[in-house]
Measured scan of single mutants.
Amino acid sequence: TEDARKEAKKIIDNGGSPDEAAKFIKKYGLSEDQARELVKRAL
């Protein structure tokens, strides 16, 4: 979702790792793979 993508970008912009961002956005109901893909797109 757009919200999850924004959250991921915010985490990374604040110095978080892509892994942290992926873990965080899994709470939106995404699978591990979906979360990682979304983080990649957010970069």
Rank of each mutant, 00 (worst) to 15 (best):
T1A: 12
T1F: 15
T1R: 11
T1S: 11
T1G: 09
E2K: 08
E2R: 10
E2T: 09
E2G: 08
E2Y: 08
E2W: 09
E2S: 10
D3M: 15
D3S: 12
D3P: 07
D3I: 14
D3F: 14
A4H: 03
A4F: 08
A4T: 03
A4V: 07
A4C: 12
A4L: 14
A4P: 08
R5Q: 12
R5W: 15
R5E: 12
R5V: 15
R5P: 04
K6A: 12
K6Y: 09
K6R: 14
K6P: 02
K6E: 10
K6D: 06
K6Q: 10
E7T: 09
E7M: 15
E7H: 08
E7D: 13
E7F: 09
E7A: 14
E7C: 15
E7S: 08
E7V: 12
A8S: 03
A8Q: 02
A8G: 05
A8N: 01
A8R: 03
A8K: 01
A8V: 13
A8E: 01
K9D: 02
K9P: 02
K9S: 04
K9C: 14
K9M: 14
K9R: 13
K9Q: 10
K9G: 04
K9Y: 07
K10D: 07
K10P: 01
K10F: 12
K10G: 05
K10W: 13
K10Q: 10
K10V: 06
I11G: 01
I11L: 06
I11K: 02
I11T: 02
I11S: 02
I11P: 02
I11W: 07
I11D: 01
I11Y: 08
I12P: 03
I12L: 15
I12R: 02
I12T: 03
I12F: 06
D13R: 11
D13M: 13
D13T: 07
D13F: 11
N14M: 12
N14E: 10
N14D: 10
N14P: 02
G15D: 03
G15K: 03
G15T: 04
G15L: 04
G15C: 13
G15N: 04
G15A: 02
G16D: 04
G16A: 06
G16L: 08
G16R: 06
G16C: 15
S17D: 09
S17Q: 04
S17V: 06
S17R: 03
S17G: 05
S17F: 03
S17M: 04
S17A: 05
S17N: 06
P18H: 06
P18R: 06
P18Q: 07
P18A: 12
P18T: 07
P18M: 12
D19Q: 10
D19V: 09
D19K: 07
D19T: 09
D19C: 14
D19P: 00
E20D: 13
E20V: 05
E20H: 05
A21T: 04
A21M: 14
A21Q: 02
A21C: 15
A21N: 03
A21Y: 13
A21H: 04
A22E: 08
A22W: 12
A22Y: 14
A22K: 08
A22V: 15
A22N: 06
K23P: 01
K23E: 15
K23N: 14
K23A: 14
K23T: 10
K23I: 12
K23R: 12
K23W: 12
F24S: 10
F24Y: 13
F24P: 00
F24D: 02
F24R: 09
F24A: 15
F24T: 08
I25N: 01
I25F: 07
I25K: 03
I25E: 01
I25T: 01
I25D: 00
I25Y: 07
I25A: 07
K26M: 15
K26A: 13
K26H: 07
K26V: 14
K26T: 15
K26D: 01
K26G: 07
K26P: 00
K27G: 05
K27H: 04
K27S: 06
K27D: 01
Y28K: 00
Y28L: 06
Y28D: 00
Y28W: 07
Y28Q: 00
Y28E: 01
Y28G: 00
Y28P: 00
Y28A: 00
G29F: 05
G29M: 04
G29V: 01
G29Y: 01
G29A: 02
G29S: 02
G29D: 02
G29C: 14
G29W: 01
G29E: 01
L30F: 11
L30V: 04
L30S: 00
L30Y: 08
S31D: 10
S31F: 00
S31P: 04
S31T: 13
S31G: 05
S31H: 02
E32G: 03
E32C: 09
E32Q: 06
E32V: 07
E32Y: 12
D33S: 11
D33F: 09
D33P: 05
D33Q: 11
D33N: 08
D33Y: 10
D33W: 10
D33M: 09
Q34G: 02
Q34I: 07
Q34M: 08
Q34N: 02
A35E: 01
A35S: 03
A35T: 04
A35Q: 01
A35I: 13
R36V: 09
R36F: 09
R36C: 13
R36A: 08
R36K: 10
R36H: 08
R36S: 06
R36W: 15
E37F: 02
E37G: 02
E37A: 11
E37S: 07
E37V: 05
L38C: 11
L38H: 00
L38R: 00
L38Q: 02
V39Q: 01
V39N: 01
V39E: 01
V39I: 11
K40C: 15
K40W: 15
K40H: 14
K40R: 13
K40T: 11
R41G: 06
R41L: 14
R41C: 15
R41S: 12
R41T: 10
A42L: 15
A42C: 13
A42V: 15
A42R: 04
A42M: 15
A42P: 01
L43K: 03
L43M: 13
L43Q: 07
L43N: 03
L43H: 04
